[in-house]
Design a protein around this nucleic acid. Structure first.
Lengths: 139, 139
DNA sequence: TATTATTAGGTTAAACCTAACTAACTAAGG
DNA sequence: CCTTAGTTAGTTAGGTTTAACCTAATAATA
């Protein structure tokens, strides 16, 4: 019983390590290895929201508008984000992710897909199926 | 094939989510939900090193000694760490983790064990065995 | 004298703020 | 229709607080 637990620890630890390495690799590839947790969270919000303006982002994140301006300026310097003028209203600007920005916003998700690729390379179809069925049981 | 990938994504995502919730819970229980990544890393080093002095920690982390003093003072205020005078040399102080400090240093590991507990509750022995054998194949 | 830790007094950068501003839209009166 | 006054979106200027570092000088012990 103890031994089983240890084995599970080892294999799961390895799995998580692989995924973590993948996401670190993504940040390095973008040339931004020391982004903060907050910055990543903001990029995720921008990604999820779609057509998000400065005012809207201020509202969502409960920050003042100058804070958003400053944040966006920083992201622009990092080449994660750019401004796009709204065609219907010259006052409003949309905050858009660049390719790099999207990479970072989805780093975890992308890392997961890389992990899954590895899983699928290592296991045949029957085994993959088995794995899914086993893990489905975890509530 | 696509579908298999999706299924794998779902179950693994759930697994990671569970583990993540566990580690967040640990930080909240300690009353320190916004520790920085660096602070956690330092607590881990203190945990791993055992009998670590201020000078030694400065050496390991490549910081100056005043930086270590300041860091330790902060950790003392957070009740993660305390000083212990060396009995053989009155100049030397060991940096020791409190129970809370140890909890945080090992949060990830503890979260993994909580996850494993859940796995073991959800799967019978034969299934656990199967899971280990499947995941072992991932290189 | 040499070593260990501390104190005093800094710096830099992240992440926030308020107040005042500019540019662009909107609606009301002439 | 045009002007003007008011509103709204984002920016600029000028702050604060906190984390995370530093050097130089000092106290206590060996």
């Amino acid at each position: 019983m103890r031994k089983q637990e240890e084995h599970l620890f080892e294999v799961l630890d390895h799995l998580l390590r692989v995924r973590n390495e993948c996401s670190c690799k993504i940040f390095s590839e973008c040339g931004l290895p020391d982004m903060t947790v907050k910055q990543i969270a903001y990029l995720k919000i921008i990604d999820e929201q779609g057509d998000v303006t400065f005012s809207r982002l201020a509202e969502i994140t409960r920050n003042s508008k100058p804070t958003i301006t400053e944040m966006v300026n920083k992201f622009v310097r990092m080449e994660c984000v750019y401004r796009e003028r709204c065609p219907d209203d010259g006052r409003v600007l949309y905050i858009r992710l660049t390719e790099k920005g999207r990479m970072i916003a989805n780093a975890e998700c992308n890392a997961m897909h890389l992990l899954i690729e590895q899983l699928m390379d290592s296991l045949d179809e029957r085994e993959q199926d088995l794995l899914v069925r086993l893990l489905e049981k975890v509530r």
